[in-house]
């Protein structure tokens, strides 16, 4: 695309994009480290993650401020407008991803040492890997503008949901078998839910990238199994 006549406008847009990528990188790290802290019972890492989330929050509010200022000063149009709106939304999602990671880290501190089931650990780890893959894929798509990746990310979210549902059943079984495990299992269930939510945020980001690049929206209905329905059956 051609450069703006007003070069500082172009530079501001570039700056915004750089900041999104930076935020994305930090969000990924937070998720990775929070899950490691949970699985390895590493409380130092958990504390570090909790602390680092604050930086992500600051980056988000700074970016939002910049976007608002650009809208006020430059009245962006067409692709520029979509870019800025998408950046605001994506930064919101990334900030939420950070919050999810922080919550996992807090729970890692809470159940430190009690978490000793290999099967559950594998399930959580697998979910986290998938969510991270999704997050990485959308962040790459943000830079490349690859719409195929965007659609596939949205469709793959189903896998994470399915994993969450099976983990949910496993945890229920554990809790029923041994009431002493309820505290640990409840925390773990929230951790799993958090990770599942990270997948949802990745999907949101994918949708926003699709809008930013194409100017139209992905169809709203996507396959989703309802976990409420599932818990009623269980």
């Amino acid at each position: 695309m051609k450069d703006h006549i007003v070069t500082s406008f172009g530079e501001e847009l570039k700056d915004i994009a750089t900041r999104i990528v930076e935020m994305g990188g930090l969000a990924e790290t937070l998720v990775k480290e929070s899950v490691t802290a949970l699985l390895k019972a590493d409380s130092a890492l958990a504390r570090k993650t909790i602390e680092a989330d604050r930086r992500l929050d600051e980056m988000q509010s700074k970016l939002e401020e910049m976007c608002i200022s650009i809208i006020a000063r430059r009245q962006p149009m067409a692709s520029d407008l979509r870019e800025i709106i998408a950046a605001m939304r994506i930064s919101n999602d990334l900030e939420r991803v950070g919050d999810m990671a922080k919550n996992v880290a807090k729970r890692a501190l809470a159940i430190e040492g009690e978490f000793n089931s290999k099967t559950l650990a594998v399930g959580v780890e697998h979910m986290a890997d998938l969510s991270l893959e999704q997050l990485k894929a959308v962040l790459d798509a943000y830079t490349s503008g690859d719409l195929e990746v965007v659609s596939s990310v949205r469709n793959r979210d189903e896998e994470i949901d399915a994993l969450y549902n099976s983990l949910f059943r496993q945890l229920l079984t554990y809790m029923m078998e041994d009431p002493r495990s309820i505290t640990m299992c409840a925390h773990l269930l929230f951790c799993a839910k958090n990770i599942e939510r990270i997948g949802d945020h990745a999907t949101n980001i994918a949708e926003n990238i699709y809008y930013m690049v194409s100017g139209s929206h992905l169809p709203i209905d996507r396959p989703k199994s309802d976990d409420l329905e599932l818990s009623a059956k269980a």
Partner: peptide, 19 residues
């Protein structure tokens, strides 16, 4: 036209990229 124009020239003009 102002959110998603079809033509590249329109896009360039309304976003201030005409060179």
């Amino acid at each position: 036209i102002f959110t998603n124009p079809n033509d590249q020239r329109t896009q360039d003009y309304i976003t201030g990229r005409f060179g």
